[in-house]
């Protein structure tokens, strides 16, 4: 495997996207996106609905495989390797944790939700699984709330707890990259803050791709932020620059200041 490469402005790059174009049938959802995500950064993606943010994430972990209508052009290099060349896409996806906008608890118990990925990679001893389940639930700041009811269905938890459960589940893959797609859309503000704290702590261990509908969330968390609009990448910049009037594009400023959305 090719090692991660150095990029212009220091830091190893984990994800290099080059001229990515994605279409659904004749509808172009994303066109000509080029950007680089560095290791151990939180990379924010903001933009109004239908800007192509979710589509971008799906191109990264090759979910296009499950939708016959999607066509992907251009290159996405993950850990130095083009994801289109990754023959075992399941192994690729195991490296990338995903959190969806609405919490999707698998129809399994809390315990089994978190034990799912470890089981997939061959952990089968109960004692080992117990340790892992506790570790990941703790990391997602959920352990204290569910430790006495690990056997209840994941879907019986509150919305905020379910979203943390899906974060625990994504972490249980031991991923290199964690992708969150508007995780706070159905979550109360307190839980949102809890999850944001979790993400800050995770930064030392992995890289986070944070798609968010809340521009302030990007400001609070992201090192760098990309602004997507109508399927194009308008600009990428250091988050603080974008938020302090140093954005290069008019639309970025307007969007950040809430003039459209």
């Amino acid at each position: 495997m090719v090692g991660p490469e150095r990029t212009e402005s220091g830091g190893n790059s984990l994800l290099e996207v080059d001229d990515l174009t994605v279409s659904y049938g004749r509808h172009v959802a994303l066109s000509g996106v080029t950007l680089t995500v560095r290791q151990n950064e939180i990379f924010g993606i903001i933009g109004p609905a239908n800007a192509g943010k979710t589509t971008f994430l799906q191109a990264v972990n090759r979910m296009d495989q499950f939708n016959d209508a999607i066509k992907v052009d251009g290159a996405v290099r993950f850990m130095g390797r083009d994801v289109a060349r990754w023959r075992n896409t399941f192994a690729l996806r195991r490296q990338i944790g995903v959190v969806f906008p609405l919490p999707v608890g698998l129809p399994l118990s809390v315990y089994e939700n978190v034990a799912f990925a470890p089981r997939l990679r061959g952990v089968s001893k109960k004692a080992d699984l117990d340790v892992l389940v506790e570790r990941y639930l703790r990391r997602a700041a959920l352990w204290e709330e569910v430790k006495d009811r690990l056997d209840t269905l994941g879907s019986m938890l509150s919305g905020g707890q379910q979203q943390r459960l899906t974060i625990a589940r994504a972490l249980s893959q031991d991923p290199v990259l964690l992708m969150l797609d508007e995780f706070s859309i159905a979550v109360d503000p307190v839980t949102t803050m809890k999850i944001e704290d979790v993400l800050r702590e995770l930064r030392s261990e992995l890289t986070i791709l944070l798609v968010t509908n809340l521009v302030q969330q990007a400001r609070r968390l992201a090192d760098r932020t990309a602004f997507f609009l109508d399927g194009s990448l308008v600009e990428v910049g250091v988050t603080e620059d974008l938020f302090t009037g140093r954005a290069r594009h008019r639309e970025t400023v307007d969007y950040i200041e809430g003039r459209f959305g």
Binding site: M63, F66, V98, P107, F116
Partner: peptide, 25 residues
Amino acid sequence: RAFREACWALGATRWQTIRKVVLPN
């Protein structure tokens, strides 16, 4: 379908997804 997608995103193969999530339900 959301269950399948969540399962695939975890790195499960189609068959693992069928056996562990789709068939039981």
